[in-house]
Amino acid sequence: MSARTYVVRGMACGYCAGFVTEEIETIAGVTGVAVDVEAGTVTVTSEEVLDIAVIRAAVEEAGYEFVPGA
């Protein structure tokens, strides 16, 4: 089991969190997604470590900015 937290810019409300969650949940192996809109973070729990490019693509598909290395 792996849990990683990523910084995402542009989220302002629960709807934003919902869009990001929906996109990330489509990734194979993801077992949970927790979005903290106020902190601008997304914690992804998965069966194994996921490729960061896949997480970035999902966040960008939802319409938000993925901040690498933050």
Rank of each mutant, 00 (worst) to 15 (best):
E47N: 04
V20N: 12
T41D: 09
T5G: 08
C13H: 12
E22C: 03
G29N: 14
A53H: 14
L50W: 06
V42A: 15
A58F: 00
T43G: 00
G10L: 06
Y64N: 00
V49I: 08
R9H: 14
T43L: 05
I55N: 10
V42E: 11
E38I: 02
Y15A: 13
E47C: 03
V33N: 02
D36F: 07
A58S: 11
G32C: 07
G69P: 09
R4G: 04
E65F: 01
A12Y: 11
T21N: 14
I24W: 01
V54M: 05
G18T: 11
Y64W: 12
V30C: 01
L50A: 09
T31K: 07
D36Q: 00
A58W: 10
A12D: 05
E38M: 12
T43E: 01
E22I: 04
I52V: 09
A39V: 00
F19R: 15
R56G: 00
C16R: 07
C16F: 02
V54A: 14
R4L: 04
E25G: 15
V67R: 07
A3H: 00
T31L: 08
E65T: 13
A57Q: 14
V8D: 01
T31P: 14
M11G: 09
V37C: 02
A53Q: 12
E38D: 11
T26W: 08
S2K: 13
R9S: 07
E38W: 01
G40M: 04
E23Q: 14
E48D: 11
V37K: 09
T26H: 11
T45Y: 04
E48H: 08
E47Q: 13
C13G: 07
A62R: 08
E38P: 13
Y6A: 06
P68S: 08
C13Q: 12
T41W: 09
I52T: 14
V49A: 15
Y64F: 15
Y15S: 12
C16N: 01
A28M: 03
G10W: 08
L50P: 06
V35K: 15
F19D: 04
A62C: 04
I24P: 12
V59S: 02
E48F: 11
V7Y: 12
V37A: 15
G32Y: 02
I24G: 09
T5W: 10
A62I: 08
D36P: 08
S46N: 03
V35H: 07
L50I: 06
A39T: 01
V20A: 07
A3S: 13
Y15H: 12
Y15V: 05
D36L: 08
S2E: 05
G32Q: 04
L50Y: 14
A12R: 12
F19K: 15
D36E: 03
T41G: 07
L50T: 09
I52K: 03
T45C: 02
V54I: 07
A53T: 14
A3Q: 10
V35W: 03
R4D: 10
V7A: 12
V42H: 09
D51Y: 05
E47R: 05
T26V: 04
T26L: 11
E60G: 02
V44W: 03
V20K: 11
A28C: 05
Y6F: 15
E23D: 04
A70D: 05
V8P: 14
V37L: 03
R9I: 04
E47F: 00
R9T: 11
T26E: 13
S46M: 04
V8G: 05
V37S: 07
G18E: 08
C16G: 14
A34P: 00
R9C: 10
